[in-house]
Nucleic acid binder design. Sequence first.
DNA 1: AAATATGCCATATTGAATTATGGAAAAGAA
DNA 2: TTCTTTTCCATAATTCAATATGGCATATTT
Lengths: 208, 208
Amino acid sequence: MEKKLTKKQQKILEFILKFTEENSYPPTLKEIAGKFKITIGTIQDHVSALQRKQYLEKKPDTARGFKVVKTSAGNKVTPKSDMNYIPLYGSVAAGEPIFASDNIQGYVTMEKSPKGHHIHFALKVKGDSMTDAGIYDGDIVIVRKQDDADNGDIVIALIEDEATVKTLRNNKIKAYLEAANPRYKAIMSQPFSVIGKVIELRRQYLNT
Amino acid sequence: MEKKLTKKQQKILEFILKFTEENSYPPTLKEIAGKFKITIGTIQDHVSALQRKQYLEKKPDTARGFKVVKTSAGNKVTPKSDMNYIPLYGSVAAGEPIFASDNIQGYVTMEKSPKGHHIHFALKVKGDSMTDAGIYDGDIVIVRKQDDADNGDIVIALIEDEATVKTLRNNKIKAYLEAANPRYKAIMSQPFSVIGKVIELRRQYLNT
DNA sequence: AAATATGCCATATTGAATTATGGAAAAGAA
DNA sequence: TTCTTTTCCATAATTCAATATGGCATATTT
């Protein structure tokens, strides 16, 4: 089923991709022909080969009507609309509004989750209360906004207006939070509210 | 300096953006006119207004030659070309070629590093030899290809054809590798070669 | 050896898409 | 009010771009 591309076909497919990214619109047959110093007729052949092998779609009678659906390596082409920019908030001091826009330190890119329209945000972890769970000071956690979570989930909780990263322990009677570092005693029966669940951790080794 | 857009101009700019994402190529004047049930002449006016106000670029005499440079909200439009797709390799057994294309488990998206044309790849960590450095089994490390590194860097090293994640200890006389987990003794004076430096760690909490 | 796919050319034709021009009504700013 | 900008129309001209045809030389596969 999977037909492989020839070297020439690969080059042409890659050119179409690259051209589109650089110009924001795909090339014409003539422009492709110009790049490879061959004629339009030849490009017609290559393009129909690429279509036949299902790497490229083309709308008939349409200028620049190309759509690359697979790369030469066989990967699906992810459209830009499938990427999300998630705001990265710095650590928040008690009492301050968490999602203040002037607290945004930057943005983190992430592929859109296939199902569900969840809201995500990212937080920079401060402190060492989660080192036993492998979360260190300076790490970035990506959080999916939700106000409940399951036992064992790592969550962002609001305790007295301060956002903290903790593991949720839910023993059916009362939920409590637990710092992964045993030096901190578990915060029990304190009023808190879950504002999101940690779905990914990122740590950057910035030196050099 | 910043001219604001009228409602109509906003709608047209947004349509061009949306159309481009859906079709992979921008619309023609006629297609825009069709959407808004007005004539091409009118669209010409709108398009020149958008150009004048620096929201849209257009290559003359070029079919679909649009490039949206700013959204109606004033945000810069980030081209997809600023994103990199990095191959994610699974753990490799000894003797097998590391970068075999059939060992690619998927792709990881990452913003292009501003300077330098480094080659990156990602590896899924197997084993618990780095838990003390906060790297766990199943974590994904993003690696920048290079054959040297500094003292203290976490590197991917090749020891007897097996790729491993280790901390580099370079005491000027001889470099050796060190597993962050003390249960493993440091591998000293064994022949090895550095193939890259870990620049980022990602851990996904997949449940629910 | 014969059939098939690739890679290349040239030219003509049809259709698609941009540009040019000139006019006119309505809203907003000076 | 006057001026400018916006929003709209219609039509013609021109250039751009895709398609259609037919032919030729190499490889590859059956």
